[in-house]
């Protein structure tokens, strides 16, 4: 019968019209911004730099300015300048730090390759998406201070991933301490024929435990 298909179609639209009042599967829109979207844990937007603490973000950045992310970034939106001096990292080991670390979020395409290639778990993906700005440079070219966010924030947005990273970093730290301890023990047990300076060597990594030997983490040279 001609028109049967049309009537069938009208029945479908009627079902959807009624369904949109009571069936969540048929009424899926949200009243943004009154209702904020519930983002999945994996959601990624732009990168941020992980710092160990919130009090001293510049002093506890995990980034050691190795520039791998800068090289691998497909659209080349990362700009890093290495520091001239060294600062102790979370483990107390002296490391180079980024004197300049800028990400041009107008160029960034949120591909996450910087996160994948970072060997230090220092750069992670943020979930902040409402970042409209009135000026292309003031608002969208993010510098080191704007990029740094504490590890606690990372735990807040990606809890599973952050716990894995923390566990891995802790295991690496333990392994390194164990290795240093074994090396020290081996050297101590070595025959006295070894030069006396070698015996003193094990003390060097341990020296990081004494805070007095660390230069105070003053303001980075380029932040003025």
């Amino acid at each position: 019968m001609l028109g049967k298909g049309l009537l069938q179609g009208l029945a479908v639209t009627a079902k959807n019209l009624v369904g949109s009042y009571h069936d969540p599967a048929r009424y899926v829109t949200q009243e943004y911004p009154e209702v904020q979207p519930k983002l999945p844990e994996a959601y990624r937007n732009f990168p941020f730099l992980v710092s160990e603490t919130a009090d001293d973000p510049m002093g506890t950045l995990r980034c050691v300015a190795c520039q791998i992310c800068e090289k691998e970034c497909p659209p080349q939106c990362i700009y890093i300048e290495k520091s001239k001096d060294k600062k102790p990292d979370a483990n107390g080991k002296l490391q180079i730090y980024p004197a300049v670390f800028a990400i041009d979020t107008a160029v960034c395409m949120s591909c996450q390759i910087c996160v994948e290639v970072c060997p230090f778990d220092a750069i992670k993906m943020d979930q902040e998406f409402a970042i409209a700005a009135t000026d292309r440079f003031d608002g969208l070219l993010l510098n080191r201070e704007q990029l740094a966010k504490p590890n606690a924030y990372y735990h807040q947005i990606h809890p599973t991933e952050a716990s894995e990273v923390d566990a891995r970093l802790a295991a690496e730290r333990r392994a390194a301490e164990e290795k240093a301890r074994l090396a020290a023990a081996a050297k101590a047990a070595a025959p006295k024929a070894a030069a006396p300076t070698a015996a003193a060597a094990p003390g060097v990594p341990a020296a990081s435990a004494s805070p007095g030997s660390i230069p105070p983490p003053g303001p980075p040279p380029s932040s003025s």
Binding site: P40, A42, Y43, S110, Q112
Partner: peptide, 28 residues
């Protein structure tokens, strides 16, 4: 009408992509 129904269902698949890869359309 048909486009809206199609997009409603598409969004459900995109939600799966997003929760797996982190992005709805640029999955990488």
């Amino acid at each position: 009408t048909p486009l809206m129904y199609a997009f409603r269902e598409r969004e459900k698949i995109l939600d799966l992509f997003e929760s797996l890869s982190g992005s709805r359309m640029m999955c990488n």
